[in-house]
Write a protein that binds this DNA or RNA. Sequence first.
DNA 1: AACGTTGAAATAGTTC
DNA 2: GAACTATTTCAACGTT
Lengths: 85, 85, 85, 85
Amino acid sequence: MSKVHAIATDDLKKIVARIERLEDEKATLATDITEVYGEAKAKGYDVKILRKVIRMRKMDSSKLEEEQQLIEMYQEALGMLPQAA
Amino acid sequence: MSKVHAIATDDLKKIVARIERLEDEKATLATDITEVYGEAKAKGYDVKILRKVIRMRKMDSSKLEEEQQLIEMYQEALGMLPQAA
Amino acid sequence: MSKVHAIATDDLKKIVARIERLEDEKATLATDITEVYGEAKAKGYDVKILRKVIRMRKMDSSKLEEEQQLIEMYQEALGMLPQAA
Amino acid sequence: MSKVHAIATDDLKKIVARIERLEDEKATLATDITEVYGEAKAKGYDVKILRKVIRMRKMDSSKLEEEQQLIEMYQEALGMLPQAA
DNA sequence: AACGTTGAAATAGTTC
DNA sequence: GAACTATTTCAACGTT
């Protein structure tokens, strides 16, 4: 176990600053998203449904990847098994 | 925000004891599972594949639930939307 | 495939597009943050500690003290502290 | 449906059954633990603090001190501590 | 035995 | 405020 025992202060400060800046931007985007949902609601859209639909769109594009993974899984499984290497 | 400021010691001890006991049992089961995989490996089975297959079996039984959820989602979406209640 | 009425108006499409774009950017930032932690790790920093410290910086200090007090209260109730005053 | 050779020997089936049974029991315990936390919450305990304290009890004290020292080291490097010695 | 990958657990946010 | 979902964090595992 070799933890760092002498910390390069300036270096660490820069790292922390970068992370905190990125997290700030991320939080801002989260707020923006909430606001867009708010606008949608004001226009009469159902926010809950909207969220679900958007989630489904994301899932659908992940389904392709999942399918690919399953194919590879089976390929691997068929290559070996009981008399595995 | 109403945190508890006077702690009933005996009560808390019992709660902690119960949780720790359950966690112990859970850890024991985790060890047992690891051991079964170990036996399987000793018999020549490919543990990695075995894990994947078992995971897939779990997924397959979740697929039914997922499908049901999607159906309900669509039913919901078709009932409302722009002119939502 | 059953058409879903005329739900997908241009307006709704725009809203969805905006949200998805914002979510993409958010996901990119999440990846960036992970990468910065990766760099920090490569430089020898302890990522787990780093995360904890950054989280503590986010909490305002009154919250931090309050949490710490609660922890000590619980520890005392459980007899985890050497010999409390 | 394409049969997958004679992979599913009785032996393999038994192994899978044992693992799945153990995993079921493990999942049940996880649910039980969640419920105990729920009861604790209903009695007014702070679940988040409770979890932290229980986690701390699990860590041996040398680890805990080491972690605490690292945190302070980082905090000092970042100027988060009032006026370090 | 460190490293990355992956699955489990915990926390935070959203909805009803 | 209770339940559900999504995100984030943590720990285990296999790999090199």
